[in-house]
């Protein structure tokens, strides 16, 4: 196994040297790499535009919505809906806190001007979310909501969780992918 890895690395180094010698090829492969990166970025930004959500895809990090959503599931969000209703699963963000939370709307109070005040709760939690809100905050508003969960795909988020838990893995993976794209002969 070690031999195999060493062998692969040697070959990659040779390939890189060859690539370095051939500037035309190098440019081509770099453009190839750039295209992959920018396609991914474009898809992400396009999704942001369509869903009007700052993060159209989120990974579930806690078990507070079990058994519906487990750690590692991904959720697709849609924020282009004007209104949110009671019972909707929404992702919200508390001011000055980084991590968004996925929970279900328990109460909706609609004001005459159309503004809403919301209270949320996790299906698997015993109490509502007032304890999670900012100190003194009793209600969420529409602006706090990043999006309504419209779809789910299981296990995909495990990769993200692994990458977050072991940051080294992130660099190794990105580096390896970049290298293989650079040295691959497909394009």
């Amino acid at each position: 196994m070690i031999d195999l890895i060493r062998d692969t690395i040697d070959k990659q180094v040779i390939e890189l040297k060859k690539l370095w010698a051939n500037k035309r090829m190098l440019t081509f492969q770099l453009l190839n790499l750039a295209m992959i990166v920018f396609s991914a970025l474009m898809i992400w930004k396009g999704l942001m535009f369509v869903t009007k959500s700052e993060s159209p895809v989120v990974v579930v990090l806690s078990g507070s919505m079990e058994p519906a959503f487990q750690r590692g599931d991904i959720l697709f969000l849609n924020n282009s809906v004007q209104k949110v209703y009671v019972g909707d699963v929404v992702v919200f963000k508390i001011k000055d806190r980084d991590i968004p939370i996925v929970h279900r709307i328990l109460k909706v109070h609609e004001k005459p001007d159309g503004k809403v005040e919301l209270l949320t709760k996790g299906d698997n939690n015993r109490v509502d979310d007032r304890g999670l809100y900012a100190p003194g905050q009793l209600w969420l508003e529409r602006e706090d909501i990043l999006g309504k969960a419209v779809g789910t795909l299981r296990y995909v988020g495990m990769v993200t969780i692994a990458l977050n838990d072991y940051p080294v893995l992130k660099y190794v993976l990105v580096g390896m992918m970049g290298l293989f794209v650079l040295t691959s002969k497909e394009g």
Binding site: P67, A68, Y85, K107, V108, H109, E110, K111, P112
Partner: peptide, 16 residues
Amino acid sequence: DTNPNNKIVLWDRIIE
């Protein structure tokens, strides 16, 4: 009078 529309969950259950 204050809120033209109030919706509140009174009870829920998860059926797997």
